[in-house]
Amino acid sequence: MDLRLPIGLLFVLLGLLLAGYGLISDPAIYEASLGINVNLRWGIVMLAFGLAMLSLVWRGRRVT
């Protein structure tokens, strides 16, 4: 089993979940976090990390 697959999947799902929640949530909840919509931003970072992991899996398959 390629461990990068479940890691990539989990981070893609978590990223989508957080970023999606960041889009629909009430901006007032971000007062605590310096007014930054941290869910949206961090969700995108996690999504990118997850996709990078999945692309490594995909590349590994193509080579072998």
């Binding site: 979940l17 957080l18 976090s33 941290v38």
Partner: peptide, 11 residues
């Protein structure tokens, strides 16, 4: 508790 909003708090 101080800095994380719902969502990130779960994380």
């Amino acid at each position: 508790q101080k800095l994380y909003p719902p969502g990130l708090l779960g994380l």
